[in-house]
């Protein structure tokens, strides 16, 4: 069973059709990169999977549970509302292009905020609050260690470089142990010399078996880190395949020209 299934997903903003029926699936432990020129629908696809946008029609299934289902034959009915189960968000993590760290919390505070709030729902919260918080702190410290940020735990986001901020954002997403970790152009807001440290963390996550979806403009990185690559253009999946298939032997003329202009010019 696939860990994520997306079927015929559509999404429009007003008259602009951003997703025109996107289907793909992702297996556990796989790393999927989504590439394509700006405006092709990559980010919207990722935001739909993470409930930041509500798709119009299609179906999203996460770990076998239906997260979204919109019937295309009924979408124009006034009374019709598509099915959404936001609880599935527990299985997903998202790292943003602009990091979106919470400026008023320290690095440690950014990591522990959501788990601490989630812990309040536990039945033993009142009796074991101290132990639960200590457990969360311990987990945060071990994740910070793994991402090379132990020394920064008491710093505030404004005291960190862009690369460090993005690593904190990744660490924060890992705190909830998401089944699928999503990245929305994680290095696009960084100076070129800072992208390396972030990409290194993503590569290490791959080695430890994380399932990931990466929307990126870093083609060389996508090629090396991915099991599967989707090339999106005009709201559709133009081509899907292994890195070698996409980069060495693209079937579509659009893929070929995108890779040539974007990739070859950079190398």
């Amino acid at each position: 069973m696939s860990i994520l299934n997306v079927e015929k997903l559509t999404k429009s903003f007003g008259d602009v059709e951003v997703l025109k029926g996107v289907s793909f699936s992702l297996e556990e432990g796989e790393v999927l990169s989504v590439i394509g020129s700006s405006g092709g629908g990559k980010t919207t696809l990722l935001r739909c999977i993470n409930f930041l946008e509500t798709p119009d029609t299609g179906r999203i299934t996460v770990e076998g549970k239906t997260a979204f289902e919109g019937d295309p034959s009924r979408v124009n009915e006034k009374q019709y509302t598509p099915f959404i189960d936001r609880n599935v968000q527990h299985s997903l993590g998202l790292v943003f292009q602009q990091f979106n760290l919470f400026p008023q919390y320290s690095v440690l505070g950014n990591l522990t905020l959501a788990p601490r709030l989630a812990a309040k729902k536990r039945e033993d919260f009142k009796t074991a609050k101290k132990e639960i918080y200590a457990e969360i702190d311990e987990k945060a410290l071990s994740i910070l260690k793994a991402t090379g940020l132990s020394e920064k735990k008491d710093n505030y986001p404004c005291q960190l470089s862009g690369g460090q901020q993005q690593r904190v954002a990744i660490a924060r997403a890992l705190m909830l142990s998401p089944a699928i970790l999503c990245f929305d152009e994680p290095t696009s807001a960084l100076d070129p010399e800072l992208t390396g440290e972030v990409l290194k963390v993503i590569r290490e996550l791959r080695e430890s078996g994380h399932t990931m979806i990466i929307v990126t403009h870093e083609l060389e990185f996508a090629r090396r880190v991915s099991d599967k690559i989707i090339f999106m253009a005009n709201g559709l999946i133009e081509e899907m395949g292994t890195p070698d298939e996409i980069f060495e032997n693209p079937k579509s003329e659009k893929t070929r020209s995108f890779i040539q202009t974007d990739y070859l010019s950079a190398n």
Binding site: Q89, G93, R172
Partner: peptide, 12 residues
Amino acid sequence: PKGQAEAGQVLG
């Protein structure tokens, strides 16, 4: 910024 609320939302 809108991203603050979005970051909170994806963290549950």
